[in-house]
């Protein structure tokens, strides 16, 4: 198995999330997102690459936010079918783990849950960063947005 070295670092609310670069479609700026009143946790849509992509806003707990905090300046589009899926964040950076001599560590089994997108942890600056695969993160976003929809149904 080839070890992945190139990652995109997403930062939001102080949470550091690494995603393999080959699973990222593109990085855009927030002004290109058409913001909407949220439904199913979607805070906006990005029209690009000939497709409409739903845009999500997450907090440091990886829970869906129904609003966009002020600092969110960037949009990271993750590759997904049938269309890319966007996450807005405060900062985005491209990081080569090998070059930076950073060594990810597997998430311990006692910390795993069936729906968690986190696969590995990494010491980065003064934080513990989480490493997710793009596919797992897309699946997780779909899961929590469905959960939100169901809970809203429950209230109604």
């Amino acid at each position: 198995m080839t070890e992945i070295s190139l990652y995109v670092l997403l930062v939001f609310d102080g949470r550091y999330l690494f995603i393999p670069q080959h699973e990222v479609e593109s990085v855009e700026i927030i002004s290109d997102v058409k913001l909407i009143d949220t439904s199913e946790g979607v805070v906006g849509w990005f029209y690009g690459h000939g497709l409409e992509s739903p845009v999500y806003s997450l907090n440091d707990n990886l829970s869906l936010l129904l609003e966009i905090p002020k600092k969110r300046d960037y949009l990271v589009l993750l590759k997904a079918n049938p269309q890319p899926i966007g996450i807005i964040c405060d900062e985005v950076e491209s990081i080569n783990l090998q070059k930076e001599l950073l060594q990810p560590q597997e998430l311990h089994v006692v910390m795993k849950t069936p729906t968690s997108p986190i696969r590995q942890l990494l010491r980065y600056q003064d934080k513990i960063a989480c490493i997710c695969s793009g596919t797992a993160l897309v699946k997780y976003l779909s899961h929590i947005s469905k959960q939100l929809l169901n809970s809203e149904d429950g209230v109604l």
Partner: peptide, 23 residues
């Protein structure tokens, strides 16, 4: 301690011990 999201409620923190990240 560092809190890791989407983890079980009884095991949501990690610490650094001898360069390892421990639950």
């Amino acid at each position: 301690l560092f809190e890791i999201p989407t983890t079980p409620y009884y095991s949501s923190d990690v610490l650094i011990f001898q360069n390892r990240i421990l639950p």
